[in-house]
Each structure stands twice: as C-alpha cells, then as structure tokens.
Amino acid sequence: MSNGFDRMRYARGMAAGALLMLPVHYARAVDGISLSGSGVMSAGVGGTSIAFAQDSTVAADNPAGMGLVGSRTDLGIQLLEPLTDFEYGSASNRLHTGRVYPVPNGGANWQITPRLTLGVSLFGVGVGTSYGRPALPIAGAGVAQSSLATAIAAPTVTYRITEHNIIGVSLALAYERFSANGAIVPTADGTLRPLPSHGVSSAFGYGARIGYIWQPTPAFTFGASYATRIRMSQLAGYKSDLLASGGGRIDIGAQYGIGIAYKIVPSVTVAADWLHLQVSNTIIGSAQGFGWQNQDFFRVGAAWDVDSRWTLRTGFSRGNHPIGPSVVAQNLLSAMPVSTAVSAGASYRFSKSDEVSGVFEYGFPVTVTGNGSSTGFSERTKTEVVGISYGHRF
C-alpha cells in the first residue's frame, strides 16, 4: 500500500458505508438498488411496467396493473452478477468482487368478478460484496464482505371503477436478512480497529402502494403509481455500530412514476416509463450513511407477438447515477449500481395456458473517481442479469 495513502480517510469511508447490498425493489440494482424489472417479462422491456402489465408480478410497479392480467400464476428467478473493482490509494491497491446473486420473483392473481381482482406479487433483491480478503492490513480485520437479501410480498386488490379506469392498492410486507464483515473504524486516539461481525441479522417492515390505470381505447394505456417508504425494524447488533447513524435500520425509500403503452399494430406494443426513486430520508441517502442521491429513470421497451407461440422483447433504461465523487469511499462495501442498461427477452407459449419466458440484461460499465474526502478512491462496476420464469393462466 502506498505510503501517502490516508488510512484514516479510508477507515471513515469504511465505517460509514461498510455494507449494504442494495435492497429491494425500491430502486434497482441495475436501476438504482433493485432489478430493472420486478419480473422476467418486465425486465425484457427494460422494466417498463407502470402502464404495461404482462404478468402477476406487476403490483411491484403498479398495483392497478393486476386488473389487466386476469387469473394467472407466475414463478421466476433472475441471476444478477455485479462485477466491481475498487481502487484506493494507488492502482496497485485493488479489490474485486464478482458473485452471482439469485433474485426470485412471482405472483398469483384471481379475477373475482369482471370488476374485482385479488392477488399477490412477490419480488425482491439479493446482492452484496465479497472481496476475498481484508480491505486493510489491520490485525483482526476480517474479509471485507456484505450481504443483504430483502423480499417483499404485496397483497393487492384492484377495482374497475368505470370501463376505462382501474385503481389498485397493495400492502408491502418486507423481510430482510443482513450481514457484514471486515469493517474498520478510526478510534479517538487516531488508531484503527476492526468492528466485529454480528453475523446474520433479520428485520421486518411494512409500507403501502397505490396505482391507477386509464385505458380509453384498447390500443392506449396510461398508468401512475406511488409506493410509500417501507419502514424496517432494527437489525440487531449492527444498530450499535455500523448502522447507528440510521437507527439500526435499512429502510426502503418511496418511489413514484408514470407510464404509457401503445399498440402501434395489434401485435406490437411500445411502452415508456418515468420513475423517481427517493432515498434522501433513509440511511442510503444520508451523509452519515451512504450519501446516495435521489434518482430519475427513463425506460422504454417494445414487445412483438410474432405468432401464437412467440413474443420477443427489448428495452432500454437510463438514469442519473446515485453515487457522487465525494462519497465513493463510504460505499466500498455497497455494490455500486449502473445507470444505463439494455435488455432482450422472449416468451414461448406451450399452450393457451402455459408459457416460459427468458431475459438477458447488460448494465454498461460506470466508473466514479473520488474527490474531496474520497480522493484516491475509484470504483468501476458493470452488471449482467439472466432470468427465466414460468406462467400459467387459469
């Protein structure tokens, strides 16, 4: 390690940011701190789902969308691989992480009457970092790594108030498991000491979602949705040190957005979303935590029903990056997201009732070079996602 490297500056960054995995659906691990698409079908069109409902995971993005998918069940998994290189002090001081994180999703929906549906969407994220060695050669320092897995169940009811208008509401019931190891902090006398790992800690949380769909013609759909902040309980152990600045909680911030979908011909639908992700009132956005900025994402996608068997999809997503140069150091143990991604997907229908879908998504590399208190730090990340799901109509 270079002699000129400021170990105290590095330790402060470690202490502030030593963990996060990038929680659940309130943003995206490709679009912020969750996946671009809550389900495999929506991931295929770049996450555009506020007005473009395709399966029973749609309540993650717009509860009212469940009023358009009919009676069906879905089960899928997306495999997220964030590849991150973190440099500090000099180019020779480099940490690398590149694990694969499985992110399950699914749902079920019942068309109770022509106006009423009841259902549930299941979604979440599982990400982290694992550098394979201590971040600093400090006696007693453990391997620098972190993991957070958050799952959300969204029981949902929709009601068609008129022929062209649907409203939907959901609860958001969250469960998260968190662990962190290898954090190092400065002491009052200027030395450095490692924090103990508290193992795996669990928390529960709750929130709510509301959505609206307007479909004046069979070809055009407008959607809008709002999700409240999900307030999590304290993570035992970590509330006393690593997460003390956030009261021991990793809350999931509010989000809201609007979208449109249009059938240019009966077999081709194009869609677009604007999505705002708010982190400013959580530990993720606080200056004492990770210092992330609120984000605005623009997503576009298209789906082509080639014939009765095949549907092809493609999409694009772009937003402002949440991590600024001044807070690179405190995000060493949080998996940095990308801000631009493209995707391609397809569905194959075995029958009128059963189909299988797949997706591949690529998040373009992004590099943030630190300044101010993060001078000497640099982080580079790219992501790849593959997913598969099965859907059954009944």
Rank of each mutant, 00 (worst) to 15 (best):
Q278E: 08
L79G: 03
L275N: 14
G207W: 03
K352E: 09
A29D: 12
T369C: 06
G98D: 12
I167Q: 03
P266H: 09
T73K: 03
S179A: 14
G47V: 08
A203P: 07
V45E: 02
S286I: 10
V368L: 06
F290H: 09
L192S: 08
L68W: 01
G168E: 02
M8Q: 15
D296F: 03
I283T: 09
T150I: 11
S373G: 10
H164Q: 08
A51I: 01
A188N: 05
L35K: 00
V327T: 13
A11N: 07
Q255R: 14
R249A: 06
P23E: 15
V143Q: 10
T314L: 03
S56C: 14
A153H: 11
A244Q: 13
L235M: 12
Q78V: 01
L243N: 10
S233F: 04
G124V: 12
V300R: 02
V69T: 13
R133S: 11
V45K: 02
S38T: 06
G89C: 10
L235R: 10
K239D: 14
S245N: 09
S326G: 07
D74H: 14
S373A: 15
F52Y: 14
G358V: 02
G315Q: 04
Q78A: 06
E379F: 00
S343L: 00
A53E: 06
T187I: 01
S56K: 03
L148Y: 00
P114A: 04
R9Q: 14
V30H: 02
A219R: 07
F86I: 15
G285S: 05
R393H: 14
V328A: 12
P63K: 08
N62L: 11
T383W: 01
W214M: 03
S2F: 11
Q330G: 08
K352F: 00
R160N: 12
L275M: 14
D296M: 02
R313S: 07
S92C: 00
I50W: 07
S334V: 13
F350G: 11
V103W: 04
A139H: 10
F204R: 10
F350D: 00
G89V: 13
L68Q: 14
S225Y: 08
Q330M: 10
I284L: 15
